[in-house]
């Protein structure tokens, strides 16, 4: 078991965005989280990636409790993520974005920098090589020198995934990677996600595009009003009464 949450709860003032969620993700799986708008999916990601502190409950990663660690330690332990709204370092190039993504794997500090130590040179090369490797993987190598502001939205989405990949995660959390891109691009993206899983990375996906979810996911968790209402294979979930009700009661999604 890679990640396990127990009674995970997050309150925002009076609002319970997550309500005692128990969930497990096994090594190598491709799981998905679905639910109507405002169900708490992104909040779940924010909590298990250390971005928000949970109000109560625990998070275990590779058997170790990590609930109260600081944000950067989550990434260092191997939890990579993308944000629902594409987050990139907007003032630099595609390559530079990925180079900084590998920083947490390097050790050079102030004195390495000012004396231009062998370590700093070695690590700078390492970052560059890793960045190019990932660029190749996500198919953006030829754009490496473009300013991020100049690439298409779909390329930016890929880059955001690349940015999470460059930290060498064991668990990759993707928050609506296919939102706002067209059909053909969605297929490409689904292939990329499959490829990521095949390379040995566990993937957890939030997505409203049901067809994509049903094709990709091996296991699905359904959230509604912060509560887990169902969990199972795509088939089980799509036949679940409560799920159908939640979706009919809420807003229908494509």
């Amino acid at each position: 078991m890679l990640l396990k949450t127990e009674h995970l709860t997050k309150n925002f003032g009076g609002l319970t965005a997550l309500n005692k969620v128990d969930f497990e993700i096994n090594e190598g799986e491709l799981v998905a989280i679905i639910g109507p708008n405002g169900a708490g999916k992104s909040t779940f990601f924010n909590v298990i990636s250390g971005f928000y502190r949970p109000s109560s409950g625990t998070i275990k990663f590779m058997g170790k409790e990590i609930t109260n660690l600081e944000t950067h330690n989550f990434a260092r332990l191997g939890i990579g993520r993308t944000f629902q709204t594409t987050h990139l370092f907007t003032d630099s190039t595609v390559l530079d974005n990925l180079i900084i993504g590998y920083r947490s794997k390097t050790k050079m500090g102030f004195f390495d920098a000012i004396f231009y130590s062998p370590r700093s040179r070695r690590e700078e090369n390492m970052c560059r090589e890793k960045a190019e490797e990932i660029l190749d993987f996500i198919g953006l190598l030829e754009f490496k020198n473009y300013p991020v502001a100049n690439i298409s939205q779909e390329a930016a989405k890929r880059l955001a995934i690349g940015l999470a990949l460059v930290t060498e995660p064991r668990l990759l959390l993707l928050d609506e990677p296919a939102a706002g891109i067209n059909h053909g691009e969605t297929t490409n993206l689904a292939n990329l996600i499959k490829k990521i899983q095949q390379s040995g990375i566990t993937v957890c996906l939030i997505e409203h595009k049901m067809k994509m979810v049903m094709n990709l996911a091996e296991k699905i968790m359904v959230l509604n009003y912060g509560t887990k209402i169902a969990e199972g294979t795509p088939k089980e979930v799509s036949e679940n009464e409560r799920v159908i009700e939640a979706y009919l009661g809420g807003v229908e999604h494509a």
């Binding site: 971005f51 989550f74 990434a75 370092f89 900084i100 050079m108 920098a113 999470a164």
Partner: peptide
């Protein structure tokens, strides 16, 4: 150096930098 990149990444987005393990 990478240190300067690290600083600039914090200027650009603290949130992103911290989710990258910085």
């Amino acid at each position: 150096s990478l240190l300067g990149r690290t600083f600039r990444s914090i200027r650009n987005s603290e949130d992103l930098a911290s989710t990258l393990g910085i």
